[in-house]
Design a protein around this nucleic acid. Structure first.
Lengths: 217, 217
DNA sequence: TGAATAATTAAACACTTGTTGAAAAAAGTT
DNA sequence: AACTTTTTTCAACAAGTGTTTAATTATTCA
């Protein structure tokens, strides 16, 4: 109906960039519309309230990322049939889409991941995407692992997922902390290097709970 | 010299509580001083700029926590001498102080950990505590692991530390996400249950890199 | 006690906040 | 062409922002 207006996209891109570095409350609508070179009133006109802008920013990418990750998980399970999929493949399927987008997806995706890291534990801001997109995927992921590790206990898997979630979030947040800490030895920009270590690390962690059940090491 | 004024503490406590849920930019000085039941001007009078309040909030606990964790690491290493300390004990020493404070430290500590989770990848806000307190501790921790796993490569250890850092941060942030996801099976309030799984999980992850060196699983 | 220092108050500063309304311009439709 | 709908602009709103100033009250110490 309407023309392929670029105004909405410019607002979203500007908002994404600013939210990534200063957070939701740290960015004003004026700053967004200035960055987008657009009248302040257009933000309200196109999106409504400020929080609606934020949701639009997040949903835009959550949708495509979610679809991709589900597809990779399904693929991984189908390839292995009739056997359960190998653990490290499940974990790779869960994480690889993030790697692809973070490395080849352009700056916008990096901003998106930085925002995710901020709202991962913020119910008010992260509620929508988390419950709508991430949680169903997480359940699928955990179910797949349950298949591969039939003797494991659900609580253990949920907690392991939790650890994975934390590691993943920090890894793709683009923080420079580890770079400073390692005196330049570990540039977070080299996401392939990280991913090559992340998957075995997490896989080994999960495998601890393959058998029932001895928590203290 | 001055009396043991409680005003500064009340401001810090109020700020801590509010920062934990709404972030630095999401909280105004008026909100803080109202919560503290104190005149707005007292914030500037006692602390200076808003960011100074934030730093004071963080430094207050970072100092005691840092001291505690270093002591536990040193203890762990000394106990094992002349052998290198066992890996899982090093990791426990690194994490156990957090567990103690989060479970027995009262509400303030929970707020503190929630803030840590927010600024973990925020250079502007997290810079001071991170470089001044957390980074030296991290180096000590990694050095200890290097001793236990002499054939490991520094890059691997740094990245593993990074994963641990992410998992830790999310775990102690107090988020309810995992609770919802697991339909109440994994209450994040039961930090002992989490910790009992976190340490073996991370230990197994590190051990992957004990020998040099085969990243793809 | 009285003088000096510290803490608290109330008011105001100039500026930014999110959002809205009505007028103007652009695009779309018949 | 004229008419309708969509988009953009400009101005304004009331409320909130961090911070400062000067006056007032508590406290400390000689």
């Amino acid at each position: 109906m309407a023309k392929q207006s670029s105004t909405k996209d410019r607002i979203l891109n500007a908002a994404e960039k600013l939210f990534a570095t200063r957070g939701f409350y740290g960015v004003s609508i004026r700053q967004i519309t200035t960055e987008a070179d657009v009248d302040p009133a257009l933000a309200s006109y196109h999106f409504g309230k400020k929080k609606d802008i934020f949701n639009a920013v997040m949903l835009r990418r959550a949708e495509v990322l979610n679809r991709e990750r589900i597809a990779m998980l399904d693929d991984c399970i189908r390839r292995a049939k009739p056997n359960p999929a190998p653990l490290h493949e499940i974990i790779d399927a869960f994480t690889h889409a993030l790697l692809n987008r973070a490395t080849q997806g352009g700056q916008g995706w990096k901003h998106y991941f930085a925002i995710i890291a901020q709202i991962n534990n913020h119910p008010e801001l992260g509620g929508i995407i988390m419950t709508q997109y991430f949680d169903p995927l997480a359940k699928k992921f955990i179910a797949a692992i349950q298949q591969t590790m039939p003797d494991s206990q659900p609580q253990d898997l949920y907690w392991c997922y939790h650890f994975l979630s934390g590691a993943l979030t920090l890894t793709f947040s683009g923080t420079e902390r580890i770079n400073n800490l390692s005196d330049g030895l570990c540039p977070p920009s080299d996401l392939y290097a990280v991913h090559d270590r992340l998957v075995p690390f997490i896989t080994a962690g999960f495998k601890v709970f393959a058998k029932p059940h001895k928590i203290t090491p």
